[in-house]
Simulated scan of single mutants.
Amino acid sequence: MTDPRAQIGTTGKRLSRRSMLAGAAAGVVAPAAIASLGGSAATAQGNSKGDSGKTRRITMYAEEFPDGNVGYGLAPGKASIPGPILEIWEGDTLEIDLVNNTDRRLSIHPHGVNYSVDSDGSPLNDSFNEPGETRTYIWSTTAPYKASGNMWMPGSAGYWHYHDHALGGAHGTEGLRKGLYGALIVRRKGDILPERQHTVVFNDMTINNKVAPHVPILEANLGERVEFIAIGHGNTFHTFHLHAHRWANNRTGILEGPKDPSQVVDNRDLNPGDSFGFQVIAGEGVGPGVWMYHCHVQFHSDGGMAGIFLVRNEDGSLPDGAQAALDRYHGHEHGGDHPHGH
């Protein structure tokens, strides 16, 4: 049995709460892009409509893997599936210089934020990268604001995502199938920041382009605040279920108080183009252990759409019984042969 540490996915990293809070108090602004392997949580303030906000510029690279899959990364040779988690605060603008290091046309298209037709990322608007081309995409955000007729317009805060919209056709279907996707978070002033983050993408019959038992293990220590960003792609209906943990079915996944009427769930539809996020306290009320997350469409989970959320002891050690459960997961047949991505 391989050491479970070697199976850890590249979709989360422990963030220091002390450093985050200290940064917020000092008005420090961290980079807008948080890579799959980490970075620190941003601490910028939200802005109302009309405020200039802050503008940050990052460079992303689209690269092909030896098996033919394709991913986004924040540095040459660092592409991953899913791509890096991108974070901004309401009122801020993110400028992305996308470098296409493949021999196919591709793009980057966001959900949930504002952009012009030039930054649409679609062939319809002639917005894409030719092979070898670098193109700048500009995404802006806004806080809720009062519009004409005394109506309030929603802000940009939410758990969104980005993806290709040009590889293989006008809708980027081949790009999505090959792994060109990632999480986009727009936070509102006062939102609680996590200590770890994990992106989970149900893409047709895979999780992050893999199937069990090859889905990377997602980890946390007992008591850590963990953020999940769930995204759906492909052509298939799914539901996302996390064992032993639950969340509020609202924008943040967190109840605002004991009288908050938000529905509390542990299973939610996750269909193509959909996304949501939530935070849990790892092992809260149930203790450390090996907890499954999976699609609750039964033949999907039987076919390999199942992963592991490993909650270690507070000191990082494996809890009793965890190794045996990991052995069972890695030794179980999950529905035959499937292509496995990076």
Rank of each mutant, 00 (worst) to 15 (best):
G234N: 14
L184N: 11
D315A: 06
E133T: 09
L15Y: 01
S16H: 13
N69K: 05
G175E: 01
N150I: 00
G234E: 13
E63A: 00
R177E: 13
L124N: 08
D3P: 00
R18E: 15
H243T: 13
Y329M: 07
W160I: 05
I85C: 02
G158A: 08
L242K: 13
V200A: 05
R268P: 00
T134A: 02
G304I: 04
G9C: 05
V297C: 08
H214L: 13
F278Q: 03
E227C: 13
S80K: 12
D337S: 15
D320Y: 06
L310M: 12
H238E: 00
I185K: 10
F309V: 02
H342N: 09
F299M: 04
T2F: 08
I96M: 12
H241C: 02
L218F: 01
W247G: 03
Y61S: 05
A41D: 09
D320I: 10
G179F: 04
D67F: 05
F237S: 09
G277T: 09
D315S: 09
G307V: 07
G39K: 08
N208I: 03
D164E: 01
F278T: 10
G179R: 07
P288I: 07
P123V: 10
V211D: 02
P261N: 11
W139Q: 11
V117Q: 11
K54D: 01
A324K: 15
